Amino acid sequence: MTLIYYSCLPQFIKLVTDMHLFLMCLFVWGIDTGIGHALAKYLDNMGFIVFAGVLNKDGPGAEELRRTCSQRLSLLQLDITNPTQKVQNTGVLVYPSLWGVVNNAGILGFPADGELLPMSTYRHCMDVNFFGAVEVSKTFLPLLRKSQGRLVNMSSMAGKLGQVPNAFLVQELSKWGVKVAAVHPSGIQGTSELWDKQEKDLLENLPAAVRSDYGDDYLQELKSYLVRLPAHCDADLSPVLKDVLHALLARRPHGLYTPGKGAYLPLCIFCYFPVWFYDFFISKLFSAEPVPRVLRTAEAGNGNL
């Protein structure tokens, strides 16, 4: 049934659009690169009116969308951490028939050990990934309640615990007819340039003793490991895009989607197995990670005994 639904959906949307019966309006933010960028193109191609919040309106991602998308897509400058670029100033609120909001923007901080990360990294991640999503959702909920539309929160397998507040939203908004879904794609996205900048910020704030214990080569090996990691993930974004579309249009959307290779298994283990087994599974999954300098020295010393 799901395959039939997906195969018929593009023709249905095109038919309705061509007949001018209605045009569904969506707000999607975080579309400069990655999933958000592909999602903006996909939804525009499906016939939606897309208001796309972009961090850099003059960046390469925005320029490509201008070149490849229809005039239905509107690019909006939006840095949720900048007080002068609040979502209330984008003009979307005057549009009377907003059907869906996709909270896609997210900060992928340097996934090093928590001890190494400066507090500014934690604060920035919370400002965008949590408070940003809350602010955008609260801003548009009056329109979503009016349309009885959809709220879709993009997360990751690393943020599976975020499903708890999402469950509260499901309960709170169901009485208004608004359906809420969370999408947890598999994989990790990042580039060498991204890690270079974040590594520089990390080293500038790292206490000398901690830096000595871990060793500079530890961070270099970790960055190399992170850059290689996407090669082991599914580069095909179509399962993610189709799941978002299903969340936006299905009569009974799922509360949680886990598209992509290997996305569902860790969640199942976390939900249905003891915590110690989940910890063991994760440790084996990331067994190729580098080892801090002090621990390597200790292991070498024990080996000589």
Rank of each mutant, 00 (worst) to 15 (best):
M1F: 09
T2C: 04
S7D: 11
P10R: 04
F12W: 08
L15A: 10
L15D: 12
V16H: 01
D18E: 15
F22W: 09
L26G: 04
V28R: 01
T33G: 11
G36V: 03
H37F: 12
V50G: 05
F51V: 05
F51P: 01
G53E: 00
G59I: 04
G61P: 11
L65D: 00
L65T: 02
L65G: 02
T68F: 09
T68H: 07
V92M: 08
S97L: 03
W99Y: 08
V101G: 08
I107C: 02
L108H: 06
L116Q: 10
S120L: 11
Y122G: 05
H124W: 15
F131A: 00
G132C: 10
E135P: 06
V136E: 02
S137N: 07
T139Y: 14
F140I: 14
P142H: 07
Q148N: 02
L151T: 05
N153S: 12
S156V: 02
S156Y: 05
S156K: 10
A158H: 09
G159W: 12
V164I: 13
A167Y: 01
V170F: 00
V170A: 09
Q171P: 03
Q171C: 13
L173Y: 10
G177F: 07
K179A: 07
V180A: 08
A182R: 08
A182N: 12
Q189K: 06
G190H: 05
G190D: 06
T191G: 11
E193C: 12
L194I: 10
D196C: 11
L202A: 10
A208S: 13
A209F: 03
V210C: 07
S212Y: 14
D213R: 08
G215S: 06
G215P: 03
D216V: 15
D217P: 06
Y218P: 04
L219R: 08
Y225C: 11
L229Y: 03
P230L: 05
D234W: 03
L237K: 10
P239Q: 00
P239D: 00
H246Q: 13
A247S: 12
R251I: 07
R251S: 09
P253D: 11
H254S: 15
L256F: 13
P259Y: 02
G260V: 04
A263G: 03
P266F: 02
C268H: 14
C268F: 14
Y272I: 00
Y272M: 04
F277N: 00
Y278P: 00
Y278S: 00
F280W: 11
S283F: 00
L285R: 03
L285W: 08
P292N: 05
R296P: 02
E299T: 13
G301E: 12
G303K: 15
N304E: 07
N304A: 10
